[in-house]
Amino acid sequence: MAGKHTRDDGTIRTLAELKSALQNAIELEHSTIPTYLCALYSIQDGTNQKAVETIRSIVVEEMLHMILACNILNAIGGEPAINKPGFVPTYPGHLPDSDNSFVINLAKFSRESVDVFLKIEKPATTSEPPKAKGYQTIGQFYQAVRIGLEYVNDNTPGGIFTKDKKQRAKQITAEHYYGSGGQIIPVYTIDDAREAIAEIVGQGEGIDDTIEDSDQQMFGQGIEYAHYFRFNELHEERLYKDTDTPKSGPTGDRIVVEWDAVYNMKPNPKMDDFKAYPELLEKVRDFNRTYTLLLDNIHNACNGQPDLLMKGVAMMYQLKYKAIALMNIPVPGTRYMAGPSFEFEK
C-alpha cells in the first residue's frame, strides 16, 4: 500500500501525493512501535530502570507522532487507513519507503537492537535533500512532507485545509490523548501542520546541533534529549550532560545497563512457529487478536470517533500484559522464550 503516489525523486507536488505521503508517515511511525515494544517488554521487571524509562518515553512519543500524522491527514481531507493487513509490517523488514539501508526486527533488548534504534532515529544531515521516498533518515522524509504541504497548499485555491465541520471534528485533541510525552496538536491550518511536524521531528531527532528535543522550546517542558541521544546513552552506557553536543557524545555519569536481565525472546516470531504447541499458539493468537482490535480501534477513532481512544488505551495495556506473559513461556526444544508476533489476525 505504501508509496503508491510517491514520486521517484521523493518530492511531493499534488494533494494525492501528499495524502499518500501522510499515510506513509502513519505507517512509518507505526512500524517502529512493535520494534520498540518488544525491546521494552523483554526487560525483566525491576531491572534496567534507565533503559525502561528511555524506551517507554520514546515509544509513547512514536504513538503521539502516529496520531499527529493522522491529524494532518484528516486536516487535508484524507482518511487514515490503519486496520488493513498491509498496514502491518513484516518483521524483519525495513522502514516503509525508506532506502532499505537497515533492517528492523521484533527482538529483545540488546546491544544489537539499540544499534538499530540509533539508525531509526538518526538525525538528518544537511547534505541529504528532503525525500519522501528512498529517504535515509526520518527527518529527510518529514522535510519533504512539510515542503509538500506548503507547496500544495499554496498552489490550491482556498488552500487544502478542510473547512468541513464533520471532517474537522475528526481531530484527536488533548481531550482524548494524554500522557504521551508531548503535546497533541489538533490541526486545522498550515501553521498547525507545521507545528505538528516540528513536534515529530523535534522529539525524534532534536534541534539542530543540540542533543535536546523541541518540547522545552515549544511547550516549556523540562529539558529532554531527542530520541537518538536518549538511545545513545544506552549504547554508550553513559549519560549526557546538558553541556554535551552531538559531536562530544555523552560525557556524564556512567550508567549500568543490565544486558542480561532480559527475557530471551525468539527473534521475529510468527504464529507458524508455534503450530506444534496449541496452548502457546493460542496465546500468541490471542495477542494478535487484541493487536488487530487495537488497529481497528485506532482506525475508527481517527476516522470520526475519537471517543473510542479510551478503549484503545485499555487494549494497549492488555497487549503489554499479554506480551510479557508470552516472554515467560519457553519455546519447547529451544533456548528461546515466546514473544508477540504482531500479525494481523481477525
Partner: peptide
C-alpha cells in the same frame, strides 16, 4: 498493578 487504563472500568472487560 497491571492497571487497565483510563475509563476501562466503564465497559465490561475486553
Amino acid at each position: 498493578a497491571k492497571q487497565p487504563g483510563f475509563g476501562s472500568w466503564s465497559f465490561p472487560p475486553l
